[in-house]
């Protein structure tokens, strides 16, 4: 719908995207920082062998847990908000945009919890998913 067709211009109403934009920048910065650290630690730190036992040990280390949780949360936010921006470029209705944002938040939170469950399994000493 063009500006002239609508009684109330859509861009005069409702919340803006300032916080989403700020979080996109922050998550991008965190991603660059943590990805670099992650790669450095994986390739140059400690045991080079990628086997189940070494991964288990790694996931019992506080540093790895912090880095991987940060990667998980910032990666999910950055990716899902990026997807939201791509869809919003199609000039969808305000209602559709609100639904999309809600769905993406639910997906993001679910994926973060799901991913964290896998990350914390060894830390809790219960194996993968409590097995």
């Amino acid at each position: 719908m063009s500006v002239r067709d609508q009684g109330q211009p859509a861009w005069l109403v409702g919340p803006g995207g300032a916080i989403a934009w700020l979080l996109q920048r922050l998550s991008g910065f965190i991603l660059v920082l943590l990805l670099g650290t992650h790669l450095l630690l994986l390739h140059y730190g400690g045991d080079q062998q990628l086997v189940f036992a070494s991964v288990t040990i790694r996931l019992k280390t506080v540093l790895f847990i912090i880095i991987d949780t940060g990667l998980l949360a910032s990666g999910l936010y950055h990716g899902l908000n990026g997807l939201r921006n791509v869809v919003l470029d199609w000039d969808i209705s305000r209602r559709a945009a609100a639904v999309l944002t809600t769905v993406l938040w639910i997906v993001g939170i679910f994926m973060t919890i799901y991913g964290a469950t896998a990350l914390y399994s060894f830390w809790a000493g219960r194996g993968v998913f409590g097995g």
Binding site: W11, L12, G17, N85
Partner: peptide, 14 residues
């Protein structure tokens, strides 16, 4: 500010 701080304002600029 309310004219540009919304989803059809500055945030659509990539």
């Amino acid at each position: 500010t309310k004219l540009f701080d919304n989803e059809h304002g500055v945030w659509r600029c990539h």
